[in-house]
Design a protein around this nucleic acid. Sequence first.
DNA 1: GGCCGGTGATACCTCCCGGGTATCGTGGCG
DNA 2: CGCCACGATACCCGGGAGGTATCACCGGCC
Lengths: 279, 279
Amino acid sequence: METRELRYFVAVAEELHFGRAAERLGIAQPPLSRAIKQLERRLGVTLLERTNRAVALTEAGGVLLREGRAALNAVAAAERRTRRAARAEPRLVLVTKAVASSELLSKLLDAYAAEPGAIAVDVLLCGPGEQERLLRDGRADVALLHLPFDSTAGLDTEELRTEDQVALLPSGHPLAARTHLRMADVTDLPGLPLPRWPDADGAYPDGPGPQVRDHAQLLQLIALGRAAAVLPESCRAYLRDGLAAVPVLDAPKVTTVIAWPPHSRSRALAALIRTATAL
Amino acid sequence: METRELRYFVAVAEELHFGRAAERLGIAQPPLSRAIKQLERRLGVTLLERTNRAVALTEAGGVLLREGRAALNAVAAAERRTRRAARAEPRLVLVTKAVASSELLSKLLDAYAAEPGAIAVDVLLCGPGEQERLLRDGRADVALLHLPFDSTAGLDTEELRTEDQVALLPSGHPLAARTHLRMADVTDLPGLPLPRWPDADGAYPDGPGPQVRDHAQLLQLIALGRAAAVLPESCRAYLRDGLAAVPVLDAPKVTTVIAWPPHSRSRALAALIRTATAL
DNA sequence: GGCCGGTGATACCTCCCGGGTATCGTGGCG
DNA sequence: CGCCACGATACCCGGGAGGTATCACCGGCC
């Protein structure tokens, strides 16, 4: 199976429309029809159910869509990492959520920079759930993830530290004076809904809370008395006027892990991971 | 990058010889030279250092070899899983080491078979270290692995149970009468070396011990007084005349995990995993 | 109910590129 | 010094990927 065939199939499977898929691929519709048919013949498998008005995935087609995307990611990652390896001065790309503990990160970067043979590290900040994709398709080398929120499926990881969570509230709020809270106290505050983050495809789930895209927005909304949030303890570093943090006793512990694609330990990456676990 | 180019490059990178690589690929040498050169031009990266007598990988070439193998595996897995998904009656393929605890496995298979909607499970036995490859290239759906021996890099896992290790000795051996042992007692027994297992590419590492390929061979060798081994406790199930098992107090605990490729949870696989964790 | 429009399939052409054979260039080695 | 091993180059051929034109099918609509 050639990657060209996979790209074509994934396009059709996503659009469920040969014409639009062909346009997206920058080719005409007939060659696309032919390519898909040839792919089906070579596999000996029907991937798409075509009625004259609609295209639908078969069971096997669904499998190939899922697996094909992963395979295309792997190919793209191979290409990107090869290109990057050839650059004159190698760099590491570390990706983490914008919300993450900047204190741990800066300690890590400082400690790594002090290592002999350390190379430059680019820090990439992204929204939640995006890190895994960036690692997978080769745009990033290593990530800081937060369990249990992020999935480590298909990655190698080392635990760095575990912390409790606190509720971030407007400082004037009655609960802000309490010494501790429970999840039940925070989940259903009148007028203070928990915010909604965009999911993998950039859409927001339904619900009451305000839509937020980054950490600054979130803090602003909380300070304005329009939202509350439960965040790892280290977010206390971001406390400022108008914000209060109160421990939430029964919130799940948050574990920060360093994660990297399996089998991709270059010397530089190995050194960074060693530094991180030694912190 | 097309999979054809990747296959060609991997062949050359492994052989470090255009002629042999071409032969392996079933094509002539000139088109192979051309294809590699074209790949290098398109990537803008020198992958191979050719002197007139020898071919060597560059840094970037090494990266592409590693990543390219992974990508080719992913493509092959997509193809195999699609073919399998199209078969009339779906089956699950479970792979485990031949050495593994047959008792846990048979409990798992029985429990799963009793589930509503259970499908047939093929059990594949293989040598150590082979499981990951089988999962990765789509020949298997799920594996039983043993930490810390097997790598779970790039797989999703759930822990099933943890057990101590015992030394398997010929029953006539002086140590066989002891109530317990330490690793130091076992690693350097005169005349009873630990066996050598083949590694990923089928070759045996250098060393004194006899070469073994499967569990039956190993037991036979131990019973014959030609080897000793340290194995998980559950291997007591295989004890027979001529064999004795003695606990090894400071041997690392062995954790059996069920592992599967990330993001590939079909309904049947999810049910099997649920059954396993509920055992 | 016949016509239209949207959609995928077919027919047919072109041209690129992947593959083959023959040969060259070069450096190591006897 | 000449042979040989090996990768590069030159050149040719055929298949197949891609394009255009058109067909076949069917749902909807007046």
